[in-house]
Deep mutational scan, measured.
Amino acid sequence: KNALMQLNEIKPGLQYTLLSQTGPVHAPLFVMSVEVNGQVFEGSGPTKKKAKLHAAEKALR
């Protein structure tokens, strides 16, 4: 199970927000955030999926 699945089991129905998309078309950088218990966690990556995963990993720490 990855961090997204684990976080969804603990806190179902979380909303992930796209904060920014920067970089060239062939190498974009997405920044996504998720709010858990009033705290906002951000993650970035080359795809929205990876950015969401990194945000979930930070939220689980």
Rank of each mutant, 00 (worst) to 15 (best):
K49S: 14
F30S: 04
I10K: 10
M32G: 03
V34T: 07
P28M: 05
E9W: 05
T17S: 10
E57P: 01
K58L: 13
V40W: 07
K49V: 12
L29M: 14
Q15T: 12
H54F: 09
Q6C: 12
V40C: 09
A3L: 12
H26K: 10
Q21V: 11
F41A: 03
P28V: 03
Y16R: 00
R61F: 11
M5C: 14
V34H: 01
G13W: 04
L7M: 08
E57D: 08
K50S: 13
L14M: 06
A3Q: 09
E35D: 11
T17C: 10
V31I: 12
A55C: 12
K48F: 06
L7Q: 01
K48Y: 05
Q15S: 13
G38A: 03
V31P: 00
E35M: 08
V34S: 01
G13V: 03
R61W: 11
A27V: 06
S20I: 05
G43I: 00
Q21S: 10
V34R: 00
G43T: 03
G45F: 00
V25H: 11
L14Y: 04
K49D: 14
L60N: 03
L60P: 02
P28W: 01
K58S: 11
V40H: 09
N37I: 03
Y16G: 01
E42Q: 08
E57W: 05
L14C: 11
R61Y: 12
K58I: 13
Y16K: 02
T22Y: 08
T47G: 03
N2Q: 06
E35W: 05
K52R: 12
L4S: 06
G38V: 01
M5T: 15
Q21M: 09
F41M: 03
E9R: 15
Q15P: 08
R61D: 07
L60F: 05
G43Y: 00
N2H: 06
S33V: 08
L29I: 12
Q6N: 07
K49H: 14
N2S: 15
L4V: 13
F30Y: 10
L18W: 06
S33C: 12
G38L: 01
A59M: 03
E57F: 04
E9K: 15
E42K: 10
V31G: 06
L29H: 13
A3T: 15
A56Q: 02
L29R: 13
Q15D: 08
E57K: 11
L19Y: 03
G23Y: 02
Y16M: 05
M5I: 12
K48I: 15
G45T: 01
L19V: 15
K49Y: 14
A59L: 04
R61I: 12
N8V: 05
T47H: 01
A55S: 03
K52S: 07
V36A: 05
A56K: 03
P24V: 06
M32S: 06
G43Q: 01
A55T: 06
P12G: 07
Q39M: 12
H26G: 08
V36Y: 06
T22R: 08
M32Q: 05
G43S: 02
F30A: 01
P28L: 02
F41Q: 01
L19F: 06
A55G: 00
H26Q: 14
A59V: 12
K52C: 09
N37V: 03
R61P: 04
A59D: 00
Q6Y: 10
M5Y: 15
A59F: 02
G13H: 08
P28E: 07
H54P: 03
S33Q: 14
A59K: 03
Q21N: 09
V40S: 11
T22P: 06
M32E: 04
N8T: 07
G45D: 01
M5P: 00
H54S: 14
T47S: 12
P46L: 08
V31D: 03
L60K: 01
F41K: 00
V36D: 01
P12D: 03
K52W: 01
N37R: 05
V31H: 14
K1M: 15
G43C: 01
V25M: 13
N37G: 10
N2W: 03
K11P: 02
V31T: 15
P12K: 09
S20M: 09
K48S: 05
H54R: 13
T22A: 10
E42S: 11
A55V: 07
M32P: 00
T22C: 08
K58E: 11
